[in-house]
Design a protein around this nucleic acid. Structure first.
Lengths: 137, 137
DNA sequence: GATCAATAATTGCAAAATGCAACTAGTTTT
DNA sequence: AAAACTAGTTGCATTTTGCAATTATTGATC
């Protein structure tokens, strides 16, 4: 099952989150406070529900997410970040910075991301702390 | 042709380099000093030649690489970094750090990458400068 | 100058990943 | 009881990737 093309750090992260959707799902959980399947389904990029299911399960298996039943709603599942996925924040911030420099980012619609790209490391620490509380890490 | 799923910075970078190979090709050019097709073909991960061709062309179109004929070797092509791809270095370093923390990196075989992950920002600046010279940026 | 090896690809076909629309079984709301 | 909502599942079409063989051109060797 578990087979790696190589044990190069860059390859390993590509294998882990280098598909077209995983990082966007984590973005929505991390920065948009989405915690339910239905919310994640409503991303701007319009992920298909079967892909979403697959990615959520894969990322759970990889330790990037945890699932728990919603106590207020028997049919809802709450998705939470782990330390492992939270630790992708620095990478995501570098990604945002790069895109801001080179890609046609909609800076109005995505002002929170822009702000994050420009935030100090203290602000990032603060956000990380807040997320850790919210996600019970 | 040019159609984006959204103009979110994270989505745009995923669209640009979020496939299974682009980042590894850039890694080989950036950190392994590979400059020719044949060298890139010999990556540890065993990329197929048609995929390599496709990614090189795509990345050239995206401004992540430039091609030039090798003056010493009429049938060789030299691939060079651009400022745009060089500016992915901070992201790659964060990626390396994350993998070192969470993935089964072979730290012996990939010592240069490990060292890069642990390097100071001064060392990174120095490397960037050296690469800029080598690639004529 | 004929042969052989190396170069950057290209081609054809198989396999895997993704996309899309409809559907499901159970749950909550009205 | 009916309607709407929940996290998925299913089936099928399209796209991307993987693999092996092949190609046209150039350079090096004999």
């Amino acid at each position: 099952m578990e087979k790696h093309r190589s044990f190069c750090p860059l390859n390993l992260i590509v294998e882990a989150i280098g598909d077209k959707w995983s990082l966007l799902i984590l973005r929505d959980i991390m920065f948009e406070n989405k915690r339910h399947f239905r919310q994640l389904l409503q991303s701007e990029e319009k992920i298909a529900s079967n892909i979403l299911t697959d990615r959520l399960n894969t990322m759970e298996r990889e330790g990037l997410l945890t699932k728990q039943p919603d106590p207020d709603h028997k049919q809802k599942v709450i998705y939470s970040l782990t330390q492992k996925s939270l630790d992708l924040m620095p990478l995501m911030i570098e990604a945002i910075r790069w895109s801001l420099k080179y890609e046609p980012v909609d800076k109005v619609k995505h002002k929170p991301a822009v702000d994050l790209g420009n935030s100090s490391s203290e602000d990032q620490e603060l956000l990380a702390k807040r997320l850790k509380q919210m996600h019970g890490i």
